[in-house]
Design a protein around this nucleic acid. Structure first.
Length: 220
DNA sequence: CTCCAGGAGTGTA
DNA sequence: TACACTCATGGA
């Protein structure tokens, strides 16, 4: 049963990595949004430099980025790779949040907000869900590369929407739970999903639990 | 030198 | 719908 595997994996990862409170430190909501875009297909260490540089130049706000010439933004964003794409994306997102403030996201229905985010340049499924979950506080489970890899190890295949529905069906519809699980998957992935293969991958441990009743998740 | 990281957009069948 | 290709820097 796929749903049992999803639940069991959460407990296995929880036991190994702990609660991971505030694993994503950011100085402001917009800093998280910027980080969500810059981290695409890149290591976080590179993103951190750019975020620091933006703050040093006092540019960490939608208005500042929107007003910044594209060429200057490209120059700042360069260390994260794909700098032409990311500069354009960051600018589009900054313009969007200049027109409709970040705080106003909580007033919109989740599916409406998701659609608006997806319409922006450089925001696909994953980045939209990251912003929904970590900035807007909406219960939208994030499916990233590590999650897909992990699902593959468990023999679960499917496109983005299918995997997302699987996780959301298996878990209580709760923002902290979604954030925690995503954080656990990332921490596990950085450790075990590297080029060395998945010898000590959590899925190897998961197999021992198969056939036993699923863990019951604590009510939030 | 080679490989690839917490993706997304575009073009093709 | 489902892939292949492209974008690019920095670290191991």
């Amino acid at each position: 049963m796929k749903m049992n595997d999803i639940k069991t994996l959460y407990h296995i990862l929880s036991a190994e990595f702990g609660p991971l409170y505030d694993w994503w430190v950011a100085g402001s909501p917009f800093e998280r949004i910027a980080g969500a875009i810059l981290v695409q297909q890149t290591r976080w260490e590179n993103v951190d430099r750019v975020l620091t540089e933006l703050k040093n130049r006092d540019l960490m706000s939608p208005g500042s980025i929107a007003a910044l010439p594209l060429e200057e933004l490209e120059d700042i964003v360069r260390p994260t790779g794909f700098y032409r794409n990311k500069a354009k994306s960051l600018k589009a997102v900054a313009e969007y949040f200049t027109a409709s403030p970040i705080d106003s996201m909580s007033n919109k229905p989740q599916h409406v907000l998701r659609k608006e985010l997806l319409a922006l340049r450089g925001i696909g499924n994953e980045t939209a869900d990251v912003i929904l979950l970590y900035v807007a506080g909406k219960p939208s489970f994030v499916i990233d590369a590590y999650t897909k890899k992990l699902c593959g190890c468990m023999g679960i295949q499917g496109n983005y929407a299918e995997l997302q529905r699987l996780f959301e069906d298996a878990l209580p519809r709760d923002v902290p739970v979604y954030q925690h699980y995503h954080a656990l998957i990332v921490e596990h992935g950085k450790r075990y999903c590297g080029r060395k293969g998945c010898d000590s991958c959590a899925v190897a441990r998961l197999r021992k639990y198969r056939g036993t009743p699923a863990f019951e998740l604590a009510k939030p």
